[in-house]
Design a protein around this nucleic acid. Structure first.
Length: 161
DNA sequence: GCCAACGTTGGC
DNA sequence: GCCAACGTTGGC
């Protein structure tokens, strides 16, 4: 079980949009490092911090969960899509997506400014100067700290009976 | 709107 | 393989 942070501009696709849709393919990622995470590392059941970039304020707006691991991003094959990439072929896809579902909103959202004030998050990729990675790993400690700030109790581990 | 930081492209 | 030019990201 691993944790991730996914960025989305709320004008484009917000956490509320995810709740409305029930689940979504995280498509349109066109960065190789992020692609590698989606293709190789993100697993079913992983936790996702849903981050609103280019927002006022930029903030973690929700918690999501991975329901399908990496598979080809269909928008890359679609000439009608803005994300179309003719170099990506169905038999040799370049771009991948995972499918996520909403778990619960973070309300009020945890703003970037608030996260910067938390000592235990000082090493977080999101807070690194110049960080632009749209799919990034989150450590166990960072995940716990963020959920704690959001007032969310960690999910009970099923106890061996 | 500004601009720093970054990733990609392409000439050589 | 280098690196300048360019386009994009994303906070402010």
């Amino acid at each position: 079980m691993a944790y991730w942070l996914f960025k989305s501009e709320p004008e484009c696709y917000s956490y509320a949009d995810l709740e409305r849709d029930g689940s979504t393919g995280w498509n349109g990622v066109r960065n190789f490092q992020a692609r590698n995470f989606l293709r190789d590392s993100v697993r079913v059941g992983d936790g996702v911090l849903y981050y609103h970039s280019n927002a006022a304020p930029p903030a973690v707006a929700g918690i999501a969960e991975v329901v399908e691991a990496g598979h080809p991003d269909p928008t890359a094959f679609d000439p009608e899509s803005e994300e179309y990439d003719p170099k990506s072929k169905p038999d040799a896809p370049t771009w991948f997506q995972v499918t996520i579902k909403p778990v619960r909103p973070v309300d009020p959202p945890l703003s970037l400014a608030m996260l910067r004030e938390v000592a235990s998050l000082a090493g977080m990729e999101l807070l690194r100067k110049g960080s632009r990675l749209s799919v990034q790993p989150v450590t166990d400690a960072e995940w716990k700290a963020v959920l704690d700030l959001a007032g969310i109790k960690p999910a009970k581990k099923s106890r061996k009976g």
